[in-house]
Every structure is written in structure tokens, then in C-alpha cells.
Write a protein that binds this DNA or RNA. Structure first.
Length: 356
DNA sequence: AAGACGGGGTC
DNA sequence: GACCCAGTCTT
């Protein structure tokens, strides 16, 4: 049965697989890079980032020697920015601790920052053909449906059950191909919505298909408390059209990205009188002119929060007249492009050409 | 064991 | 609006 399952999967895979660059190499650096980028990210979204990273950082030494801010800039727009920070950290580990050679086993790979259970198994099997099963969202779905398992895939018990199952199913003779196959199968055939069961090579033995439970499986616990946050960005603009930005360093969203001076409020505010900021005290004590630049409040949706953002213009003669704290950087419409910024800010800049 | 962490795509 | 995506780390 295991052999049948894997053989059918692999036969299907060899006929139907997509042509993806990280499948053409055994280079652990490239495989690792692709796996980090593809965490919680669709191939279509990650592919251009993979190519850009490789064009800029051809090998682990180049990446380890890079400036973190440059890596963040290259990562801009991909989300889950801890991946980029951990990527850099792990690159330095490989260079400094492993003498530039990637660890060659699942167990050792697991020690790298940002490399968890899935990614360690992916690298170990793809690059070194180690017989360890990958268990990602696709694998959970395929196994859940094929065996008709309705234990929640994101429960502790579910994780254990599905990982055991994946291990039993693995074709130990060709783990790399098997792992690629089951994930590709989940991505292209056994999709979350409207899977192609009529063309599925496994449908005759698929419990979910036979019992008409495709729509019910897999089961997933949903526990998402969303909160609303209200951001008021202050665009301090000098007469020579420069703006102040600052890096986010607190333990919060967008860590290490840059943004305009920010005041968070309990709800949307109708004027700047309702908020205060250190820079307003420093630069604009005598009631400066200000206006709201955006017509509609921006709504930016994240996993755990909805952000409502307004942008306020505060015109200043010249930053040199004031003692601006050192963590602020003055940029113009060109130089701000060098900094990693959240997509929300990027959208705003693109929609409001604040130049002449 | 539960929360936090982005942005894009689909239905 | 709800769900999903080649998950991991922190608390």
C-alpha cells in the first residue's frame, strides 16, 4: 500500500511537475534559500525574490557578508520579516561555525536559525537524499483526505499523527522525489478548493473522495483573534522636500523596517490636535500648518491585525534648525527607495508623489 | 499549548 | 470576509 501510494504519486509527479529553478540543483545554499522564501508563501510570489537573492548573493559567504539592511530591502514585500533576519543569522552560522559548508543531516540542519522541522527535512532530502519526510500544508491535506483523518491538522495530536503517517508513507529509496511529489501533488491536484479528483490517480483509494468528504477535510482549528490598530504617520517635510524616517526596533510587526514617525491612537483622529509626538514638540511648537494627505484611510490587513493608517503632512523650514534625535534619518523621494519599508508605506508613497 | 508574524491570491 | 500558502519562534 505504501509503495502503491508513493509510486502513483511519483509517476504523477514526473509527468506533471512544474519547471522550478530550485529543483534543478543539489546546491544546499540554493535549496535552503528557496525553502525559507517559500515558507507560508506561494511559488508565484516567491520566485522573483529567489532570483533576486541569487543575483545579489550567489553563495553563503556573500549572504553572510551582506549588510542586514540590504537583505531587508531585498526581502521587502515578502512578509514575515523574521525570515530575512534569520536567513542572515543562519548564513553567518554556516560560515563561522560550519566553515562555509552546510550541515548535511536533518538533525544538524535543525540547529540553524529559521530552519524548523519542515525546512530541515526538505533540505536534507532534496540536497542529500536523507530519508526524512517533509510535512507541510500540502502533505497535511493529502494525507488527511486520502486516509479520511479528521483530527485537526494544527492540534498537537494532529501534528504527531500526520508526521508518523508521512514517515510510513515515505519511499525510503527515493525520498527526494517522493517529498517533491507529495507537495507538488497537493499544490496542483489536491488543492484546498475544488481539487481535481476526476483526474486524480489516487481517487479510487481516497477515503475523502469515496465518502464525499473532500470539502470537510482537512479539519483545522481556527483561533485567530484579530485586533484593530490605528496608525497616524507624520510626514515632517522640509522646504527642500526631505522627510524623516526611523527604523522599527521594538518587538512588534515590521521589525527592522523603516517608517515615518508614528503615533498610534485608540481610533482614527480627526486632527493632529488629538495626538502628540516628540518631534511635534521639537519642531513645531508654535502650531504648524498641517493637512491630511490621504483621502481615504488606508486599511492594511495582516494576519493578526487590521491597520488603519492616516498620513499627516507637517511642513518644516529646515531640519537643521532643530535638534532631531539621532535615530531619525532625513530622506528624499529618491533615497527613501534604498530603505526597506512596509508595503503600506510603499503604497502611500507611490500614490502620493510628494515631489513638486 | 497558544500567539505572533505579512502579503498576495482565490472564492 | 474567510481561507490558504514548501512554517518558525516566542511566551
Amino acid at each position: 500500500m505504501n509503495i502503491d501510494f508513493s509510486k502513483l504519486l511519483i509517476d504523477w509527479y514526473l509527468e506533471n511537475k512544474r519547471d522550478l529553478p530550485w529543483r534543478k540543483t543539489k546546491n544546499p545554499y540554493r535549496i535552503w534559500l528557496s525553502e525559507i522564501i517559500l515558507q507560508q508563501t506561494q511559488v508565484k510570489q516567491g520566485l522573483p525574490y529567489y532570483n533576486r537573492f541569487l543575483a545579489n548573493y550567489d553563495n553563503v559567504y556573500a549572504l553572510a557578508n551582506a549588510q542586514e539592511d540590504d537583505i531587508m530591502k531585498l526581502w521587502q514585500g515578502l512578509g514575515y520579516y523574521s525570515r530575512a533576519r534569520n536567513l542572515h543569522h543562519a548564513a553567518k552560522t554556516v560560515v563561522n561555525t560550519y566553515n562555509g559548508e552546510f550541515p548535511k543531516t536533518y538533525k544538524e540542519l535543525l540547529k540553524l536559525k529559521g530552519v524548523g522541522d519542515y525546512t530541515a527535512a526538505a533540505i536534507a532530502s532534496f540536497a542529500y537524499n536523507e530519508a526524512v519526510p517533509v510535512v507541510d500544508g500540502n502533505v497535511y491535506r493529502v494525507i488527511s483526505r486520502f486516509f479520511g483523518i479528521d483530527i485537526p491538522i494544527n492540534s498537537t495530536e494532529g501534528q504527531k499523527i500526520f508526521k508518523e503517517k508521512a514517515k510510513i508513507l515515505l519511499d525510503k529509496k527515493r525520498p527526494a522525489t517522493h517529498n517533491q511529489a507529495i507537495m507538488e501533488f497537493g499544490a496542483l491536484m489536491c488543492k484546498p478548493k475544488s481539487p481535481d479528483c476526476l483526474f486524480c490517480p489516487l481517487s479510487s483509494d481516497c477515503v475523502a473522495f469515496q465518502q464525499n468528504k473532500i470539502k470537510e477535510l482537512p479539519v483545522k482549528l481556527k483561533k485567530l483573534k484579530r485586533k484593530k490598530r490605528y496608525f497616524n504617520y507624520l510626514i515632517f517635510q522640509s522646504e527642500d522636500k526631505k522627510w524623516l524616517i526611523r527604523q522599527r526596533l521594538q518587538k512588534d510587526i515590521w521589525q527592522k523596517l523603516f517608517e515615518f514617525p508614528l503615533v498610534e491612537s485608540k481610533s482614527t483622529v480627526s486632527s493632529l490636535n488629538d495626538i502628540s509626538h516628540e518631534l511635534m514638540d521639537i519642531c513645531a511648537a508654535d502650531g504648524p500648518r498641517f493637512e491630511r494627505l490621504n483621502q481615504e484611510t488606508y486599511k492594511h490587513v495582516l494576519t493578526h491585525q487590521d491597520i488603519y493608517a492616516d498620513f499627516w503632512l507637517i511642513e518644516i523650514s529646515n531640519f537643521n534648525e532643530f535638534s532631531i534625535p539621532e535615530d531619525y534619518v532625513a530622506v528624499d523621494s529618491q533615497s527613501i527607495r534604498k530603505f526597506a519599508i512596509p508595503i503600506l508605506i510603499d503604497n502611500f508613497i507611490n500614490q502620493h508623489i510628494l515631489e513638486d
